[in-house]
């Protein structure tokens, strides 16, 4: 199983800290995990091209995401929404990019008042792109971090649960899909 962990911000440290933890929690599973931190890449702005027609970091980013079975998206909250840089990643991909992919969400925010941003802003995009979304997500607040570490034990438990549930969902859907495809006579 091919897992991509996307840290969806070019600035700050909290989302990356959380996604490092997601990578750690993936260790107990036998999967190929790749961490993509938007801060490490220089992406072009989406200009309507097909994703195969970009080059450099942009091509690497889109190809790596398209090749994934599972995508764990980490995002901070900027101006009561996801960062424009993360939206750009979605815009670079084709319309049904997340079809047959399981997508999970980790959100970091400065305030609990942003809790519904996942449901109101991120999930509609992922749904439109045909993702199978893991029902639970992990919402991490300012107070859960200290010195680039997550200091709330509950967050650690919830991140582990999210990772376990995501892989189970992906594996289950894969089996169902293979079962269905085996019925076809070609």
């Amino acid at each position: 199983m091919n897992v991509v962990v996307l840290s969806g911000s070019t600035v700050g440290s909290k989302t990356r800290t959380a996604m490092n933890q997601v990578m750690d929690k993936l260790d107990k599973h036998t999967v190929d995990a790749t961490l993509l931190d938007l801060a490490d890449y220089t992406l072009q702005w989406s200009d309507g091209r097909h994703y195969l027609d970009y080059d450099g970091d942009t091509k690497y980013m889109t190809q790596t995401i398209m090749d994934a079975d599972v995508l764990v998206i980490g995002t901070p909250v900027f101006q009561a929404s996801i960062p424009g840089t993360l939206k750009n990643v979605f815009d670079l991909l084709p319309e049904r990019a997340f079809e047959h992919k399981t997508v999970s969400i980790v959100m970091t925010a400065g305030s609990a008042k942003h809790y519904l941003i996942v449901d109101q802003q991120l999930k509609p995009i992922l749904n439109y792109m045909k993702a199978h979304i893991t029902q639970s997500f992990v919402f991490i607040e300012e107070k859960d971090f200290l010195n680039k570490q997550i200091i709330n034990d509950d967050i650690h438990f919830r991140l582990q649960d999210l990772v376990d549930d995501t892989l189970l969902l992906s594996e289950t859907l894969k089996q169902l899909r293979e079962q269905k495809e085996a019925e076809f006579d070609f």
Partner: peptide, 23 residues
């Protein structure tokens, strides 16, 4: 259908990045 599916599937992968859905 049997003969053509592998070709349409591989061809779509090359031109579009994804195969042709069996369904």
């Amino acid at each position: 259908q049997r003969e053509y599916y592998p070709h349409i599937n591989e061809g779509m992968k090359l031109t579009n990045g994804r195969g042709f859905p069996k369904q």
